[in-house]
Design a binder for these strands. Structure first.
Lengths: 147, 147
DNA sequence: TTCCTTTAGTTATCATGCTAACTATATAAT
DNA sequence: ATTATATAGTTAGCATGATAACTAAAGGAA
């Protein structure tokens, strides 16, 4: 995360960048602004989800399952793949969701190593509960409101 | 953080958003792209810093001190304020930097509660070591390379 | 079949973010 | 002067990210 409040001025970046060749100061400042704005947005989303006993990751996993057209279930490995998050994080997060009753985990008859993950009714209800606020936060013009 | 690989299509967002009023689908997709790109960039920076026994936060703290015009030192509370990070995180990170010999922490003669933080020579050297690679990562066009 | 490699998932451990609750000092109010 | 409040910093404990190292099952090659 990147929460630096006052981004460096162009002069300051110049000051550092002068010591090295080929630094595009505008691009650096753009990248800093990008990280700052996204970090604030992510922090806000996490706080929102926490108030609903969720996290962004929990939410995204549920969305991924819900999104699944026919099967209405997913293997844990498919979730890890699509979310681009490490396996242990997937394992732990799924365990939490199961303990919370939001998903159900069952054996896969074709591959004993694999687990099928399904949304419970409670899980679907949780999605409905959370989605409006989610969109409200996302579609706000600039959560950073940098001055 | 937000690492969802395949962002939802406009149709999919529409599908969810239709159930609620006033959702600007383009704005939602923009926000998702923003978070994804920044998350990848932050992850890359953290990995880079980790290879130098730093973290983005450690780096930013050192930059803040180095940036300081005359005093060449900062109070911990000022660091917390400028970085917009919780106090305990500042405490812990400063302790780590001190143990690593990159900063020095001294008492403040005017306020017994406060601590003055200074960069050591080793700390300044570390900044020089790390800055070129930092700019190189930041000024890359689009680290996400979202197809 | 036996052995080797790959894949699915877990456990253990660490780093970094948070809040709540604490100590200690400084400052303001009475 | 005493009491109350605010500020600086720490500690404890939780959540979420990561890697490394593990078990177990599947698949391929000898």
């Amino acid at each position: 995360m990147f929460f630096l409040k006052e981004l460096p001025s162009r002069q300051m970046v110049d000051g550092y960048a002068d010591q090295f060749a080929d630094v595009d100061v505008d691009r650096v400042l753009d990248a800093l602004r990008l990280m700052r704005r996204a970090s604030l947005l992510i922090r806000e989303l996490e706080a929102y989800f926490a108030r609903h006993d969720l996290s962004q990751l929990r939410f995204l996993m549920m969305i991924l399952i819900d999104r699944e057209p026919e099967r209405n279930c997913l293997a844990a490995s498919e979730i890890a793949e699509r979310l681009d998050v490490s396996r242990p994080v997937v394992t732990r997060t799924l365990q939490g969701l199961e303990r919370a009753g939001l998903i159900a985990i069952s054996e896969n008859s074709e591959d004993a190593r694999s687990r099928n993950v399904t949304l419970t009714l409670s899980g679907k209800a949780k999605l409905d509960e959370v989605l409006p606020g989610y969109f409200a936060i996302l579609h706000r013009p600039d959560p950073a409101a940098d001055k």
